[in-house]
């Protein structure tokens, strides 16, 4: 029920922002399409069985996103210098890292953050163990210090 409510609000905001015309006809069409999507997602729930709303509610979220943006810029510059230096500058490695998050949403957020910073990519997930491919030793050490892990775990509280 909570999921349906949040889905309705998100879809309504999305429609209003994107349409830009507020005549009765277009608002009615929007209401009809929101109803159709709610019906479809109800049917999919019987298959999927996911009940939690997939949004992280936390006051720390904006700070985390800002920190992530800074990390993305830093690692982008690192990868760019490695591209121009060529094959001699890279040393690809594969390693495993443990995630300390309890909920699935935060685990997905952590894996996505690892993939989003260039230089590291989550290859496979098995329970709470991630298999990560890194472009260089520095990228490997950056993940193994566990700073990102701690920051994502902080969002759960």
């Amino acid at each position: 029920m909570k999921q349906l409510l949040s889905l309705t609000v998100i879809l309504a905001v999305f429609w209003l922002v994107n349409s830009g015309h507020y005549t009765p006809l277009l608002l009615g069409l929007g209401a009809i399409s929101i109803g159709l999507i709610l019906y479809l997602s109800r049917r999919m729930e019987h298959v999927d069985g996911e009940v939690e709303p997939s949004i992280v509610m936390s006051i720390h979220l904006p700070f985390y996103l800002f920190w992530l943006l800074v990390e993305i810029i830093k690692s982008n510059l690192d990868v760019v210098t490695r591209v121009w230096k060529g094959e001699a500058a890279i040393s690809p490695t594969v390693f495993k890292v443990k995630a300390s998050q309890k909920s699935d949403v935060c685990r997905v957020l952590y894996a996505n953050s690892i993939t989003m910073t260039p230089g590291t990519i989550t290859l496979d997930i098995d329970g709470d163990t991630f298999e990560v491919h890194a472009l260089s030793e520095e990228g490997k050490e950056g993940v193994l210090t566990g700073e990102m892990d701690k920051r994502v775990s902080k969002l759960e509280r």
Binding site: I73, N76, V79, W84, I90, P92, P118, H133
Partner: peptide, 26 residues
């Protein structure tokens, strides 16, 4: 353009994926 050059200079698929993620993010 750097990301696209990386698609050519890197030796295998997984390293090329890193180069492509530069074009996707920043």
């Amino acid at each position: 353009i750097t990301g696209a050059v990386g698609l050519f200079r890197f030796p295998d698929f997984f390293t090329r994926l890193h180069a492509a993620s530069v074009t996707d993010t920043l």
